[in-house]
Nucleic acid binder design. Sequence first.
DNA 1: AACATTAATCGTAATATTGCAATAAATTAA
DNA 2: TTAATTTATTGCAATATTACGATTAATGTT
Lengths: 110, 110
Amino acid sequence: MGLTKTEMFTDQQNEISLFAKVLGHPARVAILQHLFKTNSCVCGDLVNEIGLAQPTISQHLKELKYLGLIKGNVEGTSVCYCINTHNWTAMKTVMTAFLNQDITENQDCC
Amino acid sequence: MGLTKTEMFTDQQNEISLFAKVLGHPARVAILQHLFKTNSCVCGDLVNEIGLAQPTISQHLKELKYLGLIKGNVEGTSVCYCINTHNWTAMKTVMTAFLNQDITENQDCC
DNA sequence: AACATTAATCGTAATATTGCAATAAATTAA
DNA sequence: TTAATTTATTGCAATATTACGATTAATGTT
């Protein structure tokens, strides 16, 4: 079906999976790393840096923006994209809590 | 095309995105949380707990196992699934390093 | 052996994702 | 205004993902 049954899961589980999903493509990982690394965060730079076609990069940027991880500002004919630090931190908190679940209890299960 | 061009990205970027991708479905998040929470990690329990059909759960377990995040042991007619703590820790290291990228430099970009 | 129980696999339908060419939209420059 | 530049959108093709019924495989039970 290709359709995730989100109604069967908690808000927290859906939130974690949505954040993970948007990080689940190497182009989006590369975009985020580039935005962290440099201040020259214009869309065209990302197209050159990453090597995918411009519409493809634009689409990935749209998803990252939809999840709130980046924000974009129009500057003349180009658009400057940057990390939304507030939302990134919020995402990091959610994901880190999930990753740091306690693993001591069921270590000897299998 | 639906086909990710992995050859354009670094091994690190592909690794991060693969880990994120497997966490990018609420059923797999729920499975992992349940395995962390309880020792009764038999496949049938997960089917009851989560509410998706048995083949669907089995498929999600397969993906988690393929990425190494869980391991399964046959116990009679049932199969006991558990967190692979070693690989979970390794994954956590990779993801945490990505999430903790320094955000001070480009805060004022946009 | 015959049956029951449990999980994996197969096959398939429906939806999602990825990628890009073509085009449109928005702004700037001449 | 016209042209140039840059990014977003549209439309589409190809592949991936999700879900589950039906079946198979594996083990245990009687």
